[in-house]
């Protein structure tokens, strides 16, 4: 028996096959993202949160695909935000030959970027501030912090202060590699026995 399909169904099938080919053709390579002070699934040091100095953590990456011209880093919490995710950090215009970010990227735009990532710019986080602000999950909850690193085949040349959506839109179709790490955090408030400022400073190996 000969079965004839409507033209619209045939068109949809053709589109699915075509999409699959496109997705396959554009599937980014994966590469390694690491940090000397953080590991996936482990607690972030308090110094990367408002329980400490709230400086940005160091990151490194290796195995980026050939042709990488720019690197973008986004840190976000998929368990926060309305709607999620809550953006903690957004930094782009990182040169394609950079191998990582040092600890403590300046939060003041008047301060220069470290020499190995000169030209990098920070976008707006969930608080509308163009800087890193670390995890502060409510109460005693434990959240996951997704540090995603993207390798691009173009230089975006975006100005500071862009939103996550604006950067993602600019990146669209140009991601040739990606990697990530996902440390966790719950608040680590100072104990009353640390008042004022002695024991905490002496005992804090992660400060």
């Amino acid at each position: 028996m000969r079965v004839s399909l409507p033209v619209s169904v045939l068109g949809a099938l053709f589109a699915i096959v075509l999409m699959a080919d496109v997705v396959h053709a554009q599937m980014p390579a994966t590469f390694i993202v690491e940090s000397p002070t953080m590991r996936t699934g482990e607690m972030m040091p308090r110094n990367y949160s408002p329980d400490g100095r709230n400086v940005s953590p160091p990151l490194s990456w290796r195995g980026l695909p050939d042709g990488t011209r720019e690197i973008v880093v986004i840190c976000q919490d998929h368990g926060a935000g309305r709607p999620p995710p809550w953006v903690h950090w957004l930094i782009y215009n990182i040169p394609g030959d950079a191998t990582g970010l040092p600890e403590g990227i300046p939060f003041d735009p008047a301060d220069p970027m470290p020499s190995n990532v000169m030209g990098a710019a920070q976008g707006n986080n969930g608080w509308g501030l163009a800087m890193y602000r670390g995890p502060a999950p409510p109460g005693t909850s434990l959240h996951h912090y997704h540090f995603a690193v993207f390798a691009l085949d173009i230089e975006l040349g975006l100005p500071p202060g862009m939103t996550r959506d604006e950067v993602l839109e600019a990146m669209d179709g140009h991601v040739i590699g990606e990697g990530s790490m996902v440390p966790i955090y719950s608040r680590q408030p100072a104990g009353r026995d640390t008042i004022p400022g002695g024991a905490l400073r002496r005992s804090g190996s992660d400060r």
Partner: peptide
Amino acid sequence: IDLQTGGAGGAGA
């Protein structure tokens, strides 16, 4: 900034 964003609130201060 940590005060402004509310992050200082959970630090035990």
